[in-house]
Amino acid sequence: MEFITLEPTSATPSISYNPATQTLYIIGESYPENSFDFYAPVISWLRTALTELPGLTLDIAVTYMNSSSTKCAFDIMDTMEEAYGRGVKSAIIWRYDRENPRSYEMAEDFREEVTFPFVIEAIEE
């Protein structure tokens, strides 16, 4: 199950997958012109991966998202939640910006939407 790594751009995060730890990384800022196009292959890959893998961790450090990216983040979380219901070990590590007082609260808002393990950690400098 090959994952094509996406390099970061000024408007999109880097997305990569480490098969050894079954971890999907999303790092950077996210305001693509069309978030649905941008995230569609990621969500499609995720759907397949979650039928084949025993578990998957999403390690996300995104300090800025536009509205449509936020919607896509929820879609990703819903996909993981659905898999969790089937016994897949879904987990999220959400990294927030210590410098930004809103960042932690926003992470909590995302956490409220899932029932699987969701830990909030500071972004390491």
């Binding site: 936020t70 808002d109 939407e113």
Partner: peptide, 9 residues
């Protein structure tokens, strides 16, 4: 929630 998160961003 999306509206409120977008406001925060």
């Amino acid at each position: 929630k999306i509206v409120s998160l977008s406001d925060s961003y």
